[in-house]
Design a protein around this nucleic acid. Sequence first.
DNA 1: GTTAGCATGTAAGGAGTTACATGATTTT
DNA 2: AAAATCATGTAACTCCTTACATGCTAAC
Lengths: 207, 207
Amino acid sequence: MLEFAILGLLHESPMHGYELRKRLNALLGAFRAFSYGSLYPTLRRMKAAGWISERVPEETPDAPALTPKRGKVVYQLTAEGKERFQELLAEVGPATSDDEQFGVHFAFFSKTSADVRLRILEGRRRRVEEKREGLRAALARTRERLDRYTLELHEHGLEAVEREVRWLNELIAHERADGAPTAEPHATRRSRGNGDTDAANGQQAPT
Amino acid sequence: MLEFAILGLLHESPMHGYELRKRLNALLGAFRAFSYGSLYPTLRRMKAAGWISERVPEETPDAPALTPKRGKVVYQLTAEGKERFQELLAEVGPATSDDEQFGVHFAFFSKTSADVRLRILEGRRRRVEEKREGLRAALARTRERLDRYTLELHEHGLEAVEREVRWLNELIAHERADGAPTAEPHATRRSRGNGDTDAANGQQAPT
DNA sequence: GTTAGCATGTAAGGAGTTACATGATTTT
DNA sequence: AAAATCATGTAACTCCTTACATGCTAAC
């Protein structure tokens, strides 16, 4: 997780730990935050594994050995690191649909190939739909017996999940449209709604 | 967390581990799931701490020592356990606004006193509002530089957070109305909207 | 009489957090 | 030169997961 995120960020440009952490928490803002206590040990491990290397920050040729005393350590990806990142990008396991895993994978979608993107989105959708069905069933089964607050909690959870399914549907439709503008012979009319999600919509124009 | 949830469930009725886990995951459906690997050791700890006790399932007086060989172990709350639960209910620390902590606390709201409920809801709202502001600032700051997907992720996150603020506002208003139908001399008109949350609403009737 | 699901547990370990400790650099 | 913030790191610990191991009980 952390490792993957670090690889992704260093893929864009070399960085030192402190900055890495800030960018990490900005990137994943909605999902996750990491502390130094995990960051630095992870960097160590990754260096030992050969995926990243330290780089002494460019000395201006004039001031050669100024003071890299306990200096900033700038990390950059090695060739192996780049490979590893590609590997992790494409490796869509059963856990890739988990909240956090999905978030991180999604954050690096622009570095992911179109087919893998689609696989991930569909996997996530299935997962979220399962959760939705579970919640619906539980609600239908116990609606009468639940106290006001538990009910409120479950309904709010259900709505959040329904929203996410809609979001994923849009993303998937978009991916399909982008990837095969003239190919797919199966969704000519009906720009929204895919038959599975029931029609409990009612959206309004975005802010 | 687990401990708190167990106390809460056993507060309703005695149960054995297996059932406990099922009810636990049903109760927190949207938030969390626990595995046996954590459940049983936790039960042990709690028993050692004196919060719960095992109860040999009522033998029918006719068949005295039938076969409780490796029988079901039914756990029930002790007096100390009940106290502990009340303590945890009322103890609103800085972490009570965290996603999971909040979810569990909320699930037991019907056993929580009105003033604590309000404190928890307001704490949560503040937390979520902070997150919202962070996301908004980040979006405003970097909107141009972000790739399509990161943008999509952040916007979806922001919307989710905005939804939760609205939800919390409703809950808080409801609590206030319930708790002090005639008392509070400070919210006579304006049944909704609390000045802080900006007016990006636009809700429709619930399902 | 064997598969499926109920029921209880343990050992090893993953993935992080908190709290602490320290030094360098910039701002006031 | 004091305060803030940047920057790196470690030790101890928390909390839970995975994988395994076992036995009982109902259904087919």
